[in-house]
Amino acid sequence: MLQIDCYAYANRLLSVHPGEKAAFSLVTMIICLASPSPVTSLAVILLAALLTIYRAGVPWRPYLGIAAVPALFLAFGAAAVAVSFSGQPDGYLFGLSLGGTCVGVTPRDLGIAARLFLKSLGATTCLLFLALTTPMVEVVSALRKAGVPALFVDLAAIVYRFIFVLAETAERIYISQSSRLGYKNLRSGYISLGQLAANLFIRAYRRSQALFTAMSARCYTGEIRVLETGHRVSVKNVAVIVVLDLSLVALSLVNLP
């Protein structure tokens, strides 16, 4: 989380209009999800990853580390799709027979699982592109400009801010506990962790009240109004996005099964 946030503030695409980045990410994701061809999915994965690494300048090693987490999840999910049960053992690539039924993987299911995996990974890399190039503050203000209800946008902004406040609080409690040997063995570790969680919850509650107080002191009346910084839309970037996405559409039309 923190790592993603660091890159979001320190990448070469920071000054690009957040709307452009969001549009690219969303449109590409939709193409990836709509296209039945795995070639498109592969192309999207490559495109999004290469853009993040080469254009935005996120180093490839941490990028792979960040992408590996969702990829692993997706792989497990896809694996579950590939496995099927059946009465007769023929037609399985490999399988295992348990009593009367056979558990295994058929070529057809394997194909479906692979496609599913690639498709969802493609969508994930698109999201990662946005997450790694655009600070949350800008995503939020893009949402606000796009007409998303204020309640939702304000909530997103405050939740985001408080992730860090709470993470810091948790870290401080953890450090103070471990400096007093709170984690010296498994038993005391569990006890300390339980206390940390309970404490964090209470503090989160207290903090939310204090925040409301502090905001009221500055004339808050129910809607967060802040200054939005302007970005200029670059015609060149829009053209690049259109060309890239159109080529992806073309690619998936050519590869229609």
Binding site: P135, M136, V137, A157, I158, Y160, R161, F164, V165, E168, R207, A210, L211, T213, A214, M215, R218, C219, Y220, T221, I224, R225, V226, L227, E228, T229
Partner: peptide, 19 residues
């Protein structure tokens, strides 16, 4: 930490005057 509600310094400071 209880006063700052925004993740952006600029937006944070603009909150009062905007209100």
């Amino acid at each position: 930490d209880t006063q700052l509600f925004s993740s952006s310094v600029l937006q944070e400071v603009s909150f009062g005057p905007m209100n």
